[in-house]
Design a protein around this nucleic acid. Sequence first.
RNA 1: GGGCUGCUAGCGCAAAUGGUUAGCGCGUCGGACUUUUAAUCCGCAGGUUCCGGGUUCGAGUCCCGGGCGGCCCA
Length: 500
Amino acid sequence: MELSGDLAGSAAEEFRARLAKIEMMRESGTDPYPVRFDRTATCAQLHTDFADLQEGTETETTVRVAGRMLLQRNQGKLIFATIRDGGGSIQLFVSKAIIGDDSFTAFADWDLGDWIGVEGIVMRTRKGELSVKVSSAQLLSKSLRPMPDKWHGLGDIDTRYRQRYVDLIANDDARRVFEIRFAAIRAIREHLVGLGYREVETPVLHPVAGGATARPFETHHNALDMDLYLRIAPELYLKRLIVAGLEKVFEIARVFRNEGLSTRHNTEFTMLELYEAFIDYHDIARLTEDLIAAAANAAIGTTKVEWDGKPVELAAPYRRATMAELVLEHAGVSMHPAMPIEEARAMCDRFDIPWQKSWGAGKLMLEVYEKTTEHALWDPTFVMDYPREVSPLARVHRDDPHLTERFELIIGGREVANAFSELNDPIDQRRRFEAQMKMKQDGDAEAQGMDEDYVRALEYGLPPCGGLGIGIDRIVMLIAGVTSIREVLLFPHLRPEGGS
RNA sequence: GGGCUGCUAGCGCAAAUGGUUAGCGCGUCGGACUUUUAAUCCGCAGGUUCCGGGUUCGAGUCCCGGGCGGCCCA
């Protein structure tokens, strides 16, 4: 049986039995896949509109609802069924005396998982369950495959990710997480639009992979016979738009990084990036905490979340501290990018951090920070003022030429945002690209390439500007309280099934 | 890439130290039932124990290799 190639045993038998039902329907002139259904209400609407309906009473309101049948309790001459649509579920009250023998038999013969549509009056049963007392019913789409366990749902993680549609049918918690995702993204978008931001779309295929430190996917354009890269960040295009005078822009951008998979990393993930003219990274920090709090409130109605077993408060304001202060606090050592290189190397040795000769004190300081401090920052913390050496797109700090006006936001020991007062000096930018190219030549696959057009854009003048990148998936993880990024991605990347 | 760990019926899970015919629940199939809520009750069927080797009188279980996951680390 071609359609059931991956089915075996009782599932294959059930598949064939359901196919036979389809054939019988067709023979009797009924289409098992009719073209449309005129619905007059959703399940959620009924629960809202008839919240006050008394037990054991019927209305005179006729409605037409549709959904997937999840449960069926057949009493012989009376069937209770539960259907669910996109926003909720409702019980159907199906009486043989009302819909007639033939319709009743047909209804009883439909399988769990089938999509059905019914018409009937709204009622509440004696036991208090809001129901539709069905006067007519039709099959809207036949399901050929058996549903997972109606109580335990689908537990196998592999199957949950590979067949997310089944996961979402069977598991309430999966639906909950994605509802949070939808609401959080919507809240972020509305917050920014409310502030006068324009949502833009920039290229996914880049001739130069820039805007972040990461290894890109490579591809090839046949007609132009040129290599292209899937973007690792939309940053350089968005800043071109600030040059253009758009002032406030954002993009909710899918980006691609050719790196390993883990609980925290997927090869493609979603970043919010925004840029605004005339402001600096302090303004961006305020905007960042507002955005995250707004997302949490919209998604779950509170900024108090629990993550990895510990409480986290996402309400603004978040702590602000410099990287140097935090390293001193957590590692007990004083570091600065201007310190003698031997001392910085000695610090790395002290914390068992392997280093390379090409690294300056700034890079060494970052390594010490990441090893000793970052994972310990549980409450939301803006880690301010990164070394210039590791921040090729951030402007030099107004008070210290060895630092940049850059912060990363750490929550629950993980980076969730990265922001700067943007570098807008084209001469400085060119030098930093050249430094990156040297690192690339020295074998650093993550170093950025020279983007001549971006430098040219800066030469036309990028106004003072603040920029932000937020990992949307990580924000959703925090709000939803899940610790694997795969739980917040509808279709996480997996190896092919079966292998060989 | 390394360490630990998992894979048993469509789904959720059992099967001490290797030992009859690999069990249970849900679902399916057959039967009863007009107020159920994972309905209930009776009955039947359903298995390449992820794949391939090996050890053994005997392997779901032990060993080797492979596949796909999970957790932790780099």
